[in-house]
Amino acid sequence: MRHRRIGELMTREVVSVSGDAPFKELARVLTHHRVTAVPVVDGAGRVMGVVSEGDLLRKAADHGAVPGDRPPVPELEAWERAKAEGTRAEELMSAPAVCARADWTVVEAARLMEVQGVKRLVVVDAEDRPVGVVSRRDLLAVFLRGDEDIRREIVDDVLGATLRLDRADCTVEVRDGRVELAGRLPYRGMVPAVERMCAMVDGVVSVSTTRLGYETDDTPGRHGTDDTPGRHGTDDTPGRHGTAAGGSGR
């Protein structure tokens, strides 16, 4: 099982600007290249920060008003006011830049975007020089994987190579990224583990184990095989423990 790496999804054509780039040049760069943000680099090409449309629009929103018109935006904090009054990239940029590495997984990049509240990440090399940009839209590309591709990875990598299960023990159906598992596993404790591992496969939307049973209940407090009716093997009766009901989404 292999998560897709950022290097496979990122846009490699990186448009960057120098720290002394003036406001109007920044507006031209964003408009001409049809991008919403650009990294700001120093003399050695290392990323110092990022200038976005939002950074430029802050100046427009706080622009000095003419007599009788509404005053500049009053809610801006001191640092926002300083940026609004800036005229060069190094004064307008958001710093430090939120960056990623090309060998990061989609999961790592998505988590960083969520924590930092950003829509894109500058991808840098070991010298902190930009080599690409990855956006939320790029990360969503993993959900465009075909159902058969997802099913093959679950069968070959998760159930086969990792868990060493016989293909006859567990069948896998995938429709629109929704995975449904059926069959019988050796132990009850394997059911949630299989569910979690399948949910981690790129492109999976949800996992259902309602049709997945087990041979032996190895959960804490039980010793060996429990012969109590309805607790051993697959039991289709509602509320019984033989069928491990559950499901998870990504």
Rank of each mutant, 00 (worst) to 15 (best):
A61W: 13
V133A: 10
P96I: 02
R188W: 12
G189Y: 04
V115A: 06
T162L: 14
V66F: 11
P96V: 01
A89C: 14
L165Y: 03
R12P: 04
C198F: 04
G246I: 00
D227E: 12
S135T: 15
G19A: 11
A109Q: 07
R4D: 07
S206E: 05
G64E: 15
V98R: 02
K119L: 12
D227K: 07
G203Q: 05
T105C: 04
L9T: 13
A37T: 02
D176C: 05
T87S: 15
C99I: 14
A89V: 02
A21G: 00
E77K: 13
A97T: 10
A65H: 14
R70P: 12
M200N: 11
H3D: 12
V204R: 00
D149G: 11
I154A: 05
L112M: 08
D138Q: 07
D176R: 12
H232G: 06
D125R: 03
S135F: 05
R46M: 05
A60I: 15
L26M: 04
E8M: 13
H223Q: 11
L112T: 09
F143C: 00
L76Q: 08
E91G: 06
V191Q: 05
L56G: 00
V118A: 10
V38H: 01
V41Q: 09
L9M: 14
M113R: 07
A97E: 08
A97R: 09
A82W: 07
A109W: 10
G160D: 05
G189F: 00
M197G: 07
R70F: 15
H241W: 07
A182T: 08
V14W: 03
T162R: 15
E180V: 11
G247M: 06
V17E: 03
A37I: 06
I150E: 13
G49M: 12
R164S: 14
T105A: 01
T225A: 14
